[in-house]
Amino acid sequence: MKKALALLVAFVLLPLALRALEQDFYISFASRVMIYALAATSLNFVLGYGGMISFGHAAFVGTGAYAAAILFAEGVASAWLAWPAAIVLAALAAALIGAVSLRTRGVYFIMITLAFAQMMFYLVNSLKMYGGDEGLTAVRRPEAWPLDLGDEVAFYYVALALLAVLLFALHRVSRARFGRALDAIRQNEARAEAIGFPVYRYRLACFVIAGAVAGLAGALLAAHGKYVNPGVLHWTQSGTLLIMVILGGVGSLWGGALGAAVLLSLEHFIADYPVPWLAALAPNYTQHAALAVGAVLLAVVLLAPRGIAGLLARPPRA
């Protein structure tokens, strides 16, 4: 808890330091990392806490992003209205998709969540009114009186506050009755049912909560970039979120955030800071950041099965 507070203080001071160093780009970059941290943490709730391998999480990020962007295009300029709407719609999408998908197990669950997400990908592609495959561009960020989201520092603090609240909530929930039951279901589904837990209902609740948080992340993503396109719903986005969680640590509180930070940083630094000798060997290597990400992922999976969070943590009890 002390460490978490120290970390929070550091992140509160970070934009001030970056501004002093005239590195404003990294304030915006940090906001983006935190938005992905929200999305990846919500997927970790499903994957690591709930034991459900969902390959369609981008569907909920996308629902939130499109809900917010469409509302903005229709004249709803306030984030106070658009973001809750994005959360509710993403939760609804998760309830519908979850209600069907959670009747299956294993590989079928992976495939069906993927299929639903792809269906939504094609659906937004066909939304000609809202840009079709081009997507939607906004002239500015939404309003959130009394905050000015157009200001990078203000936006940063909003993302930071939401991420901090989410991590604290996840910490609490995992120790409360709901989280314990979810953990039991992950360890041994049949046994959990046999001592009286309605397994399906728990899983669905977990899936819907995660969908709602992903929806919020989507709304923030749309606001941050002033842009959405069907790419947010593409299956590779679901894959990216999965990679973040696996990198960071499946089932660990900080897993999603760490994974998002490491993955996005890797992509950024490989693309923007070419290593001369590598560039001499393979001139186009900076366009293949995925390759480097793949190598890091492989290393983490092989050397640190509990992810980066597992490496940082002290050895577990017992």
């Binding site: 609490r172 929930v173 120790r175 409360a176 009755r177 709901f178 989280g179 039951a181 728990y202 609740a205």
Partner: peptide
């Protein structure tokens, strides 16, 4: 068991 806040 749908209690989300109080530690068990």
């Amino acid at each position: 068991s749908f209690s989300f806040w109080r530690p068990v």
